[in-house]
């Protein structure tokens, strides 16, 4: 495990922000850390970077205890927290050079990073005049500058346009698959995480509600048989009489939990024989978006 926490807790004043969190982030994964705004994502990230002092519990990164190995661990982490931290009176390149000077990194690497995030043309423009997407890209370049083994990114696609989002996503996937990095990325958008994450942790009100691979998450979402037909209400009543459970209904379609292909055929025949006109019938996976809402609302 690259990141492993146990019973991690933190509170601001009386408010418990992080409750007994046990994260397990495997090496070479893109770990999507999902949760609505205010769920405790940024606080958790700040705990992982030793910016906030842990109340209770332990944090191990690269198998080492964080507090006693702060410098060694931080030297292998690149991070972007909330709004990118940028000196607005300096140009994009100066911002990177400043960091490079602190970490003894060559100017060549700075130019590479500028090219990577497509800021070469704007390298000498003051960062204060950057658009929010450009600032975000500069923030990502700063995080990548030291070629870290672990990237911790807090909502990195905030403020990016669709092209920018796709670029960042592809960049992160490339980093993991080709350069065997590990990425820990927080987001409140399930769709975004779904498209790139290999592992997911869902947090709400400071508590971890789900953790596992993306396949695990899909597995707990029960597939449904989605039937579109002329009179959904009558059909639903009819199916109920025959012992089916109706999970969703409106005037155009209804849903029944999926059991097998044969069951789907049976439903089809049953409805047809009783004069219901079926327009379509197919199996669907429950929308992860809905699952995410279910998980976070149950808590």
């Amino acid at each position: 495990m690259v990141i492993s926490t146990e019973g991690l807790s933190f509170h601001f004043g009386n408010q418990q922000v992080v409750k007994s969190l046990s994260l397990q982030v495997p090496e070479g994964s893109i770990y999507g850390f999902l949760g609505p705004n205010g769920a405790g994502k940024t606080t958790t990230i700040k705990l992982l970077l030793n910016l906030l002092k842990t109340d209770q519990g332990s944090i191990h990164i690269f198998g080492k205890e964080l507090k006693s190995n702060r410098i060694t661990i931080l030297s292998q982490i690149g991070s972007l927290i909330e709004q990118p931290a940028i000196y607005l009176h300096l140009s994009g390149k100066e911002n990177l050079m400043n960091r490079a000077l602190l970490l003894q990194i060559s100017e060549q690497r700075v130019d590479e990073m500028l090219a990577l995030v497509h800021l070469t043309d704007a390298a000498h423009k003051k960062a204060g005049k950057y658009s929010s997407g450009m600032k975000q890209r500069l923030g990502i370049a700063l995080a990548l500058l030291s070629d870290p083994k672990l990237l911790i990114l807090d909502e990195p696609t905030n403020g990016l346009d669709p092209n920018g989002i796709i670029e960042v996503r592809e960049l992160l996937i490339r980093l993991v698959t080709r350069h065997s990095k590990t990425v820990f990325i927080s987001s409140h958008l399930l769709g975004e995480v779904e498209r790139m994450a290999t592992h997911v942790g869902i947090i709400d009100k400071g508590e971890l509600l789900f953790q596992g691979s993306i396949q695990d998450l899909e597995a707990i979402s029960q597939p449904q048989v989605h039937i579109e037909l002329d009179n959904a209400v009558d059909a639903a009543n009819f199916l109920k009489k025959h012992g089916f459970v109706i999970t969703d209904i409106n005037d155009k379609h209804l849903s029944v939990p999926y059991a097998s292909k044969i069951q789907m055929g049976e439903i089809n025949t049953l409805l047809n024989k009783n004069g219901h006109m079926i327009y379509s019938i197919h199996k669907i996976h429950q929308d992860l978006e809905k699952l995410f809402l279910d998980i976070t609302q149950q808590a």
């Binding site: 991070s79 927290i81 709004q83 931290a85 700063l142």
Partner: peptide, 18 residues
Amino acid sequence: SIEHKADTWKSLFSLPIP
């Protein structure tokens, strides 16, 4: 204030620098 303004304390203290 340069760090307060640019909100860079967090990135400064998450660098491998004592």
